[in-house]
Design a protein around this nucleic acid. Structure first.
Length: 295
DNA sequence: ACTGTACCCTGTAGGC
DNA sequence: TGCCTACAGGGTACAG
């Protein structure tokens, strides 16, 4: 579900209720999600203060004053909701659910923070996961070790992409979906960025490699299109297809501006292009693109 | 080393 | 109404 813009939207919603506050109560309703939470999950959080909440790729990282970090991945259907103005001991979740009409069945974790906010993690498919890890081991942890550059920083350059693409026969779609290339892209934003860059998702990634030591125009177009589409999406609170919600419950609105994603059969929106959006399957996932203007 | 497929899990939409 | 299939924003294990 959540790609970089959705995770960043969640981070912005959680930060004000987590930063500077400690975990007062934790209701843990199962042993784990995709992976076990870990044996000392609650013990390493209770009474501990969150110093800051940052994002790396599609991970949320709550840095704690113990030197630990609560690391969270939302998988496909994970979402957080924040409830203010009511201090709710974890034991009273039943009452909370009754009051709010929340989905009890898939509410897996409830944090009650010292500042008074109640934070509920809901995840029907349970592809999400969270664990407490030592901050100093994060960089070498399998979840983080091989991640590529952040697309919104200054690290994403045509030269970087070109170097990564040398000799790669995989499709551009698969190349950009790979978190080792660029961290945080997913199906929606890869499709949208490729359309904006005018590149076919079927083309081999090697087409981005340098020619005579110079970055290709294709690589340059991509490193412009990717941050552009991500920034606009963050600005609109991400894309809500079904699950994604900001922690305050609002939807994201970027889906209203999709050029190709989930628009099979629609006329291509590029000025002067008379093509229409096609759907194909690559790596077992849908790809949406315009074969007329994406070459 | 690289590439593609199957799989984890639940819910929903669409065809019949 | 029900049943069936296909598909969904993610990542990983494995086979070739």
């Amino acid at each position: 579900m959540p790609e970089l813009p959705e995770v960043e939207t969640v981070r912005r919603g959680l930060e004000p209720v987590m930063r500077g506050h400690s975990f007062e109560h934790i209701l843990q309703r199962r042993d784990g999600l995709r992976f076990p939470f870990g044996k000392n999950f609650k013990r390493r959080l209770l009474g501990v203060t969150v110093q800051r909440l940052r994002r790396r790729a599609k991970y949320l990282v709550a840095e704690l004053d113990t030197g630990d970090a609560l690391v969270i991945h939302l998988g496909m259907s994970g979402r957080f909701s924040v409830h203010y103005n009511r201090k709710m001991p974890a034991e009273t979740l039943g009452a909370y659910i009754y009051e709010t009409g929340a989905d009890q069945k898939h509410d897996h974790i409830v944090f009650t923070m010292s500042g008074g906010a109640t934070i509920v993690y809901n995840d029907p498919r349970r592809f999400g996961f969270m664990q407490v890890l030592a901050q100093r081991e994060l960089d070498q942890h399998p979840w983080f070790r091989a991640l590529g550059v952040e697309p919104l920083g200054s690290d994403l350059t045509a030269e970087y992409l070109a170097a990564k693409a040398v000799g790669r026969k995989v499709s551009l779609k698969a190349f950009l979906m790979d978190q080792r290339t660029i961290a945080g892209l997913g199906n929606i934003y890869v499709c949208e960025a490729l359309h904006r860059a005018g590149l076919s998702p079927k083309r081999s990634a090697a087409c981005l490699a340098t020619v005579n030591g110079q970055p290709t125009r294709r690589a340059i177009r991509l490193v412009e299109a990717i941050p552009d589409v991500l920034q606009k999406a963050v600005h609109l609170g991400g894309s809500t297809l079904r699950d994604h919600r900001k922690p305050d419950g609002d939807k994201g609105w970027f889906q209203e501006t999709f050029k190709v994603y989930d628009r099979t059969g629609a006329p291509c929106s590029r000025t002067g292009c008379r093509g229409q959006v096609k759907r194909i399957v690559q790596q077992g996932r849908s790809t949406f693109y315009c074969s007329a203007c994406q070459r």
